[in-house]
């Protein structure tokens, strides 16, 4: 049985429409006009226990709205959400006990107190057994390197230190499902890696289901097995990460180191799947569709213009694929 079931979920926002000026404002006071905006439009998916799901989409695509409905913070306009047998917005407190959540920069740590005090309060609020608390604290301290942070006041921590503590606080009560909304925003690479490793480790050990929204696709590449891609409120892809890459990642980027260039490579001579990204006297970067062209074709056509010294080939990453999807180039391919 799926731990998260989402069926025909819809969320519409009412947005008040005010006319400009004082008169318009007064008019609004007596005759409020509202415009409906659909944030999430009829989405359905199931998530199994222990899955690591990357929930991605542009700003305003409906990610946070979905997460808020999953956590019970927003009431769906229609449709159904069931998390481990509980309808979150009907039995919020009961649901809260089995989930954990990180919302961007909002913190559950107490600003003026040492970190460990917040952990102790979490232990009491979630009624975590002594044994579990001790084990988790020890384990988390090790993976997230919290040893020197626990006795520091939260306000004296850097952003990265704070987020590491926040993540630890979120997993302390062994939640069944964890929602991470932009957990790595504004963090440096080392902290990001640290947090990614932590999520993977805990998932392996506890089979915690994790739903991760992020704009850093490196997070998704390294942590998630499955991608749900949402655009303008509808799901446009739901499936394995690798399948996604194979389906949409039809391009290869090749960089050639060249010399003795005799003329600029003109567009007329090349086929349409062949795109020059960068070109100068000593190097040229080319993107091409590997289903229609082979690297040999490219080498042949370039060698007419110059001498090739070296080359690097790189498959298109998630980021490039998504850029193309957002630009509308790949939809319904």
């Amino acid at each position: 049985m799926a731990i998260i079931e989402v069926k025909n979920l819809v969320k519409k926002y009412k947005i008040s429409e005010k006319e400009n000026g004082i008169l318009g404002y007064i008019k609004h006071l007596f005759h409020p006009k509202y415009k409906e905006q659909i944030a999430v439009n009829n989405i359905s998916f199931n998530i199994e226990k222990g899955e690591l799901v990357g929930y991605i989409g542009e700003n305003g695509a409906g990610k946070s709205t979905t997460i808020k409905m999953l956590t019970g913070l927003l009431t769906p306009t229609s449709g159904q959400v069931v998390v481990n047998g509980i309808v979150p917005n009907e039995k919020r407190i009961l649901n809260n006990k089995q989930i954990g959540a990180v919302f961007g920069q909002k913190t559950q740590l107490w600003w003026d107190l040492p970190v460990i005090e917040s952990f102790k309060l979490i232990k009491k609020m979630y009624e975590i057994p002594d044994e579990d608390y001790k084990n988790n604290l020890k384990k988390f301290t090790k993976i997230l390197d919290l040893k020197d942070l626990l006795d520091k006041q939260v306000k004296n921590l850097s952003l990265g230190q704070k987020m590491r503590c926040e993540i630890a606080a979120t997993f302390l009560h062994n939640p069944k499902v964890v929602y991470l909304d932009e957990p790595t925003i504004g963090l440096d690479i080392l902290v990001k890696e640290n947090i990614r490793k932590f999520i993977k480790d805990i998932n392996k050990e506890q089979h915690t289901t994790v739903i991760l929204t992020t704009h850093d696709l490196k997070d998704i590449e390294e942590v998630c097995d499955r991608i749900i891609l949402i655009d303008k409120g509808t799901i446009i892809y739901d499936g394995e990460k690798e399948v996604f890459k194979n389906k949409y990642g039809k391009h290869i980027i090749a960089e050639f180191i060249i010399q003795n260039k005799n003329s600029n490579i003109t567009v007329e001579t090349i086929e349409e799947e062949f795109e020059i990204i960068e070109e100068n006297e000593t190097s040229i970067k080319i993107k091409f569709n590997h289903e229609r062209l082979t690297i040999i074709d490219i080498v042949k056509s370039i060698s007419k213009y110059c001498e090739i010294l070296d080359m690097h080939i790189q498959e298109e990453g998630l980021e490039e694929i998504l850029k193309e999807i957002y630009r509308g180039e790949l939809i319904n391919d």
Binding site: T71, L73, I93, N96, I99, K106, M125, Y126
Partner: peptide, 13 residues
């Protein structure tokens, strides 16, 4: 400031 979102996620009313 939207902190209420966090507070509503507490395991206590």
């Amino acid at each position: 400031e939207g902190e209420i979102l966090r507070e509503l996620l507490n395991p206590i009313s």
